[in-house]
């Protein structure tokens, strides 16, 4: 409950931080325009003939949605926490009676409105330029989209928290995370719609955590999901969230014990 009471103030201060770093923020957002690069490639592919139901319009819509969901779900916890552990500034955070991970979570969420302020005009311009891109999904899909995108954010946050905790033991967590990130790019739908993968791979893609981190909300937004797939996706997302919480909790507690044993 203390957390809920604290949230508005944490938000307010984090937001002040976002404003102080607004130039960096814009660059950050420009940095994650990878979906647009992928779009160019896929556009060239589907230009001659549609592929798996993707024509130029559908593929553009897909990657525009990817861009949006990516912005809504990205975290930078790994770098922040790594730095805190490496420099020992975590010590100061540990002396406050609130879990540092909660504070970070609130911090990331507070940046969301600003990201939208930068991103929405881009998307609106895109829609104004090519109105056929805008195809509002069904009401149920929009309703499911909210929990779906939240869980996608939470999963990403937990993954980064887990990798960051490894910094209590290792110095090369970023290399390890690069490995994870490579797999994520490939298997989450970031580089190519998951439908493009061979039929045999589909069941595996469905149960891995990656799909729930990007493709699930994107498909809801682009109208490619059915109520059945949406339900299964939500279930898988929830399952991995539980696993993620358990892993982070275990790693954090052990890591803190180690931090306390070897110097803070």
């Amino acid at each position: 409950m203390h957390l809920l009471r604290a949230l508005p103030d944490i938000f307010r201060v984090s937001f002040a931080g976002v404003v102080a770093y607004r130039a960096e923020m814009v660059i950050w957002i420009l940095t994650s325009t990878m979906p647009l690069i992928m779009l160019a490639l896929w556009n060239a592919v589907v230009d001659e003939a549609p592929l798996m139901g993707f024509g130029p319009t559908e593929i553009t819509r897909y990657f525009a949605a990817t861009l949006l969901v990516r912005q809504l779900t990205s975290s930078w916890l790994l770098w922040e926490l790594n730095e805190e552990i490496r420099t020992g500034s975590l010590s100061m955070k540990l002396l406050r009676p609130m879990h540092p991970l909660w504070v970070h979570a609130a911090d990331m969420l507070a940046a969301m409105p600003t990201r939208m302020v930068v991103l929405l005009p881009m998307l609106l311009a895109l829609v104004a330029w090519r109105p056929e891109l805008l195809a509002l999904p069904d009401a149920w899909a929009l309703a499911v989209f909210l929990p779906s995108v939240f869980l996608a954010w939470l999963l990403g946050f937990l993954v980064q928290a887990a990798f960051a905790c490894l910094a209590f033991w290792l110095e090369q967590t970023q290399g390890l995370f690069a490995l994870w990130f490579g797999a994520w790019m490939l298997l989450s739908g970031y580089l190519a719609p998951l439908e493009m993968f061979p039929e045999a791979a589909q069941p595996l893609l469905g149960v891995l955590p990656f799909r729930g981190m990007l493709a699930a909300p994107v498909e809801l937004l682009t109208g490619r999901a059915t109520p059945q797939t949406a339900l299964v996706d939500l279930g898988v997302q929830l399952g991995w969230t539980v696993v993620g919480f358990a892993v982070v909790r275990a790693l954090w507690n052990r890591g803190l014990a180690r931090y306390g044993a070897y110097g803070a």
Binding site: M38, L41, W42, V45, A178, L179, F181, G182, A183, M185, L186, L191, A192, M196, F197
Partner: peptide, 14 residues
């Protein structure tokens, strides 16, 4: 090497 292999994958997909 592993990360680079994953970078080649989308090309193979296309």
């Amino acid at each position: 090497l592993l990360v680079d292999a994953m970078r080649v994958a989308p090309l193979l997909l296309v």
